[in-house]
Amino acid sequence: MFKLLKANFARVIKSATFWILVALYALYPIIIAVIENSSFERITSDKMLSLNYGIEWFPMQGVLIALLCCIIFSADFHNGTLKNKIIIGQSKTYIYLANLLTMMILSLALSVIYLLVFFILGMPLLGKFTSSASTIIWMLVNGALMLMTYSAVMTLIVMVSKNSTAAVIISLVVLTCGALIAFAAHYYTNNIPPFIKDFMIDEFGNLMRDEFGDVLLTDVPNPYYPSKAVRVFCQFLLDFFPSGQSAQISNGGYSHTWQMLLYSLGLITATSGVGIAVFKKSNIK
């Protein structure tokens, strides 16, 4: 498998797309740090770190990983070069695993580029972290696993669809669905207040007023506030899907660290298992 990895990386470093992404991940923290440094209410280093897992817009990580995955691995199907690997005795399992590992390493490497530039140039401008060390470490761990999960899902799509156009379309559909689920779940769990203000009404049905004649308001339960079961389900969706994880990490202040870790590991194992089983049975064209 080491040979497959070496060949993959030799191809990656010749890819213009990869270097464009390297430039994006290196320039993005510099631009943000410079802009924020000159603004009145500048963001903290914690927020800056969390942006690594959303790049401004939380589905963006998935889009970038899908782009890289489609360009690098679809070429093997498009050019038929996958045949060369099989003819010379590489097993389909190893080919799949090598592609999966390549994608994971690439997505983590891009994230590390962001972190390095942030630590060297961003932190001196924005100051030290305000959160605890454990919060920062959890963010790095959950963020890395989220990137690896995206890599596993995109590798599955490309290796099973076996066609660059189909892979792009399926990736876009999956990413859009993931983003919509995360957006809806995030809205239901965070944006709907449990109580809303309502007018106070006396026993005769009149509006109650204070001594200055202003209408009195009181907190009443929000009828649109989701039930506990719905909130638990929405939180599960946010914790389970990488798009939900990305939304939570890039917004900061999330608490389900262990759940996210376990869901990521579960998703990576499940998608890889399915991918290998399907790819092993497929005919290579």
Binding site: K3, A7, R11, K14, Q90
Partner: peptide
């Protein structure tokens, strides 16, 4: 089965890497 964007030499390098 060849990588269209690569030169003949680079294609052979890929094959050499795959062969270890």
């Amino acid at each position: 089965a060849l990588y269209g964007s690569m030169s003949a030499k680079d294609n052979l390098k890929q094959q050499f890497l795959l062969l270890g």
